[in-house]
C-alpha cells in the first residue's frame, strides 16, 4: 500500500479552494502591502527598507494565520461532520492519512509562500535575488512546521479555538526562543526562579528556532548566519517526525 493517498491530498486542496483561502489571502496580502507602503513612506530616509521590513513581518504573520485557521477549522469540520470516521473507515492506514494531510498542507504552504514571494517581486522595494529566494524558501519550511503542529493540535484538542490558541502559542514560542535563550545566557533570571532557566533550556531542545530563518534583515543586507541553516533544517525535520508520531499515536488510540 502506498504511503500517501493522492485522493486525500486532492480532498484537502479542494477544501482549501472551497474555503476561498487563496482569495482571502490575496485580498489581505494586497491590503498589507498597501499598509506597509503607507507606513514605510513616513520614514525620513530609507523608505524602501521600511516598506520591505513591514511587508516581510506582516505577510509572514498573515501566511501563518491563514494556514493555522484553515487547518483548525478543516479538522474540526471533519470531526463534526463525521468525515473523519468515514475517511478512516476506508481501507486507509492512520499513517497514510496523516502523511497525506501533511503533504496537502505542504502544498498549501508552498502556494502561500509563493504568493508572498510574488508580492515582493511585484513591488519595487526588493531586488529579485538569492536572498529573497532563500527567505521565501525558509518561510515555506516555517509554514510546514506550523502546519504540522496545527494538525497535531487539531487532532488532539477538542475545539478549533483551542487549536488556534495552541498553534499561535507554539509559533510565538518558536519565534521568541532566541530572545529567551539570550535571557538564560545572561542569567537575568536567578535565585528561587533559577529553575525556569532549566525548563526553558529543556523546551528549546524540542522546539525549532524560527528566529534563525526567514529573517527580515536578509531582504536588506543579504543572508547572514547561513551556517546555522542545515542545523535548523535538521532540527525542524526531526520535530515534524515527532509530531507525526504523536499524531499517529493519538489517532490510533481514538475510538471512532
Amino acid at each position: 500500500m502506498a504511503i500517501l493517498s493522492l485522493p486525500l491530498v486532492g480532498y484537502v486542496c479542494k477544501a482549501a479552494a472551497r474555503d476561498k483561502i487563496f482569495y482571502g489571502f490575496v485580498l489581505l496580502l494586497i491590503c498589507l502591502v498597501s499598509f506597509s507602503t503607507f507606513m514605510g513612506s513616513g520614514a525620513v530616509v530609507e523608505k524602501g527598507q521600511f516598506v520591505t521590513i513591514y511587508m516581510a513581518y506582516s505577510l509572514r504573520l498573515l501566511a501563518v494565520m491563514a494556514l493555522c485557521l484553515f487547518i483548525a477549522f478543516l479538522v474540526r469540520r471533519l470531526h463534526d461532520n463525521k468525515d473523519l470516521e468515514f475517511l478512516l473507515a476506508r481501507p486507509i492506514l492512520s499513517l497514510q492519512f496523516i502523511l497525506s494531510f501533511l503533504l496537502s498542507f505542504g502544498v498549501l504552504s508552498l502556494l502561500l509562500s509563493f504568493l508572498v514571494f510574488v508580492a515582493f517581486l511585484l513591488t519595487p522595494v526588493v531586488a529579485a535575488n538569492s536572498a529573497l529566494l532563500i527567505w521565501a524558501g525558509t518561510l515555506f519550511f516555517e509554514l510546514l512546521i506550523v502546519g504540522a503542529a496545527a494538525f497535531f493540535f487539531a487532532l488532539v484538542l477538542p475545539s478549533a479555538v483551542l487549536t488556534i490558541m495552541a498553534t499561535l502559542g507554539f509559533y510565538l514560542l518558536c519565534r521568541m526562543l532566541g530572545a529567551l535563550l539570550m535571557i538564560i545566557q545572561k542569567h537575568v533570571v536567578g535565585g528561587k526562579w533559577g529553575f525556569l532557566n532549566n525548563i526553558m533550556e529543556g523546551v528549546s531542545i524540542l522546539i525549532p528556532r524560527f528566529d534563525l530563518v526567514a529573517d527580515s534583515g536578509w531582504l536588506l543586507y543579504g543572508v547572514q548566519n547561513i551556517e546555522y541553516m542545515p542545523w535548523f533544517l535538521a532540527h525542524g525535520c526531526l520535530f515534524m517526525v515527532i509530531l507525526v508520531v504523536a499524531s499517529y499515536l493519538d489517532l490510533t488510540q481514538k475510538q471512532f
Partner: peptide, 18 residues
C-alpha cells in the same frame, strides 16, 4: 533591554529596529 525588545517583536530584530 535588548531581550525585551526582541521578545516584543517576536525575535525579528530588523522589525524591532524599524
Amino acid at each position: 533591554s535588548e531581550e525585551f525588545l526582541m521578545l516584543s517583536f517576536l525575535g525579528d530584530r530588523e522589525m524591532a529596529y524599524r
